[in-house]
Design a protein around this nucleic acid. Structure first.
Lengths: 170, 170
DNA sequence: CAGAAAGGCTAGGATATCCGAGTATCGGTC
DNA sequence: GACCGATACTCGGATATCCTAGCCTTTCTG
């Protein structure tokens, strides 16, 4: 679950922030509210997901990489391609694959034809864990169990616009 | 800006993941899509925000804490209250206030009446920086410049449901 | 009123992410 | 055929977040 040491607040802290923001004459209150909401949604979701993945020995980041390899044609991809797909920094990929490799879920192999490139290849154990993890995530609805199908769709729709505008894809 | 070492992908990586997910017979594809979207939205937004805040010497986390103190009645709050409001772990508050104090934007003072409690108090310099930072954030629309007013509202609406269900407020 | 329980904060350890810099390799150019 | 820019990956440093554990203080309880 998300971090919650205390009882629920008697009011919505985001709505409260909005009131103060406007009262101070600061601009962009609506964007502030949305930004704060996204940050909190991310925090709640990630906490639940990582808890659900705990028994599999995975984190969300590692699961994403493992799933990507699982779906790939040959069960292997260059480190760089992984970063492109997951939209993360090359050094983050190095770190993620390091951990997966330590657990025997992935194996680094040389690229036949380009000695600069390192391939990350999913192992049979990796495939087993990926399947188990996907079931665990579906079980907790990826930490978004509070949302309806319509709510999920609306989120995706709005964010897809943002992602395209940010240059993720075209 | 968000991390983007390469040119945009010729396809939407999230939609691609959805196809693979469904093709493998894995459950919860819609939730997976929404979760992936939220994670990416958070990443894009935070990268833009932190870049906009760079000249002020702030990060988004530090700005949130600073703004909270700015809006508070006495310009000071107990460390614990800050964590409650921002929904973060007590140790994260310690870290955040440490940095703000190093920059002279906040000052730790003892609580008159409860020697367990430490108050974080915003300084005049802190107020100046907070105002400047709020303008910088409004300028870049909190990193959400791709979204319309309706998009922002839809995001907030969907996420408020999640936050309530997660026990943030009541 | 003394001891136990609860509350408030911080130190240390772990993970993930980014950036800058460094090493190795590939390719195109003159 | 040698050189230099572009590519591919990794190392070290920085920030933010969480958790566990610990110290000190306050409050409750018998």
């Amino acid at each position: 679950m998300a971090y919650h040491p205390n009882v629920p607040l008697p009011f919505d802290p985001v709505a409260e922030a909005r009131r103060n923001w406007v009262a101070s004459g600061w601009a962009g209150a609506d964007a502030m509210v949305a930004a704060t909401s996204i940050a909190r949604a991310h925090q709640i979701m990630l906490a639940r997901i990582d808890k659900a993945l705990g028994p599999c020995g995975l984190t969300f980041s590692r699961f994403e990489a493992l799933a990507l390899l699982f779906f790939s044609r040959r069960g292997a991809l260059p480190m760089g391609k992984i970063g492109d797909r997951l939209q993360v920094h090359p050094t983050s990929v190095t770190n993620t694959i390091d951990r997966l490799e330590e657990d025997g879920l992935v194996r680094r192999t040389p690229h036949p034809g380009d000695r600069r490139t390192v391939l990350a290849e999913i192992t049979p154990a990796g495939r087993r864990v990926a399947r188990r993890a996907s079931a665990a995530l579906a079980e907790v609805e990826f930490g978004l169990s509070g949302l309806s199908a319509e709510g999920l769709a609306r989120l995706d729709e709005a964010i897809r616009i943002l992602r395209r505008e940010a240059g993720d894809f075209e």
